[in-house]
């Protein structure tokens, strides 16, 4: 139900989250992302949500938790590919105020590297 595919570009981890992110799969997402972020040479993370079909409020905690981790190392978290439904959840939870939303990968990489 949830698949995470990642690669790195410089000090940025690019993660594609596919499937459905609910309370059941949030645990899987959290563990997988934290294990990837154990590599301290990674500073920023960009999440591609264009293949995320469903997200409820359990996903909010996953992103806030990873945002905190990256902030501790002065890094940033950006996201792109949100569908209308997921964007609505980000907006009502205020997630969009701390994690910038971009249109695509290129914009995300440029955005998070801006000082």
């Amino acid at each position: 139900m949830l698949d995470i595919i990642s690669h790195r570009q410089g000090d940025t981890l690019i993660v594609s989250i596919k499937g459905e992110l609910d309370h059941h799969t949030a645990e899987i997402a959290r563990d997988r992302l934290d294990s990837l972020l154990e590599d301290k040479s990674l500073k920023n993370m960009v999440v591609d949500l264009s293949h995320l079909k469903f997200m409820d409020s359990s996903g909010i905690g996953v992103f806030i938790g990873r945002y905190k981790k990256l902030s501790e190392r002065m890094g940033k978290l950006g996201a792109y590919g949100l569908n209308n439904h997921i964007r609505k959840i980000w907006e009502i939870s205020g997630l969009h105020r701390i994690i910038d939303i971009y249109d695509n990968l290129e914009e995300s990489l440029n955005g998070i590297q801006e000082v």
């Binding site: 409820d56 359990s58 905690g61 996953v62 806030i64 609505k88 959840i89 009502i92 939870s93």
Partner: peptide, 15 residues
Amino acid sequence: ELERSGMGFTVMETF
């Protein structure tokens, strides 16, 4: 401690 956002009822009310 479970990284719960506390937004469950707010989401239900909104949607």
